[in-house]
């Protein structure tokens, strides 16, 4: 009798769980998936990262860069170069509404930079200034679900009309278990695929998902930039005021 009762409870449990899980997953729209992505990658209140960049040319020759990156929420980011010597001190601040500042130590001046630089390479890496901005994809792009694979979603993102970007579309692969994007294809204005980013070593640190290694490849030049997170701190209480011109040259 006990066995029968237990079996019934188990069956009921399984049956009850099915309508809640599977249909809910199926019901997720492309936008909901993208919003979950935004929530996952921007989950920490703030991020303090030390990053090692390895630039690899088509002959396999490597150059090393080191930088620190602070991020507050999903729309404020400060990047500072720590090495090599000729780039040390260069700092980049990205704020909402496409406001960007660059500090170049040689000129002793914080310079406002316009959105025309967004499609240019950031300090010789394969990341553009646009790639270095903090972002909520769902605010800039209209998503379309292309396919649902076993363990991932594939979305096509096209920029919203009012958004200034040099990408005609992105195709983004998202893990279905944690909604972390692990591959992004970037298409230029001629709708030609020209860059691919792969995110690896996706780990949980202090309850937040983060990719500790990522790689951006420029398909035309065969040049790659590997980004390795050397040190990470989440929710360390970075003050809002640090994302200002005042702190760019400190």
């Amino acid at each position: 009798m006990k066995k029968i009762t237990l079996s019934i409870f188990l069956m009921l449990g399984i049956i009850m769980s099915l309508p809640q899980d599977l249909p809910a997953e199926k019901q997720l729209t492309a936008l909901q998936i993208l919003e979950k992505v935004d929530d996952v990658i921007n989950a920490p209140k703030d991020q303090d990262l030390k990053i090692k960049l390895i630039l690899v040319d088509k002959n396999g020759k490597e150059k090393i860069r080191e930088m620190s990156m602070l991020q507050k929420g999903s729309d404020k980011r400060m990047v500072k170069f720590l090495s090599p010597a000729n780039q040390k001190g260069i700092a980049f601040l990205s704020l909402p509404n496409d406001i960007m500042y660059l500090y170049l130590p040689a000129f002793k001046k914080v310079r406002r930079i316009a959105s025309h630089v967004k499609n240019t390479k950031f300090a010789g890496t394969d990341f553009t200034y646009e790639d270095m901005e903090a972002i909520r994809y769902s605010e800039k792009y209209n998503p379309e679900l292309m396919k649902k694979e076993n363990d991932s979603y594939v979305l096509q993102l096209t920029p919203k009309k009012e958004v200034k970007t040099d990408y005609s579309k992105l195709i983004i692969w998202i893990r279905s278990d944690n909604f972390y994007p692990f591959k992004i294809e970037y298409y230029n204005k001629n709708r030609i695929l020209y860059k691919i980013m792969l995110r690896e070593k996706i780990e949980k640190v202090n309850d937040y998902w983060i990719s500790k290694e990522s790689e951006m490849e420029d398909l035309k030049t065969k040049h790659k930039t590997k980004m390795c997170i050397v040190n990470v701190k989440f929710d360390s209480g970075i003050l809002e005021k640090k994302f200002s011109k005042r702190y760019l040259n400190r």
């Binding site: 406002r112 930079i113 316009a114 959105s115 025309h116 967004k118 200034k164």
Partner: peptide
């Protein structure tokens, strides 16, 4: 002043 008109930087 410094800013942008469209994507052109101006000062």
């Amino acid at each position: 002043l410094a800013g942008a008109i469209g994507s052109i930087g101006i000062w």
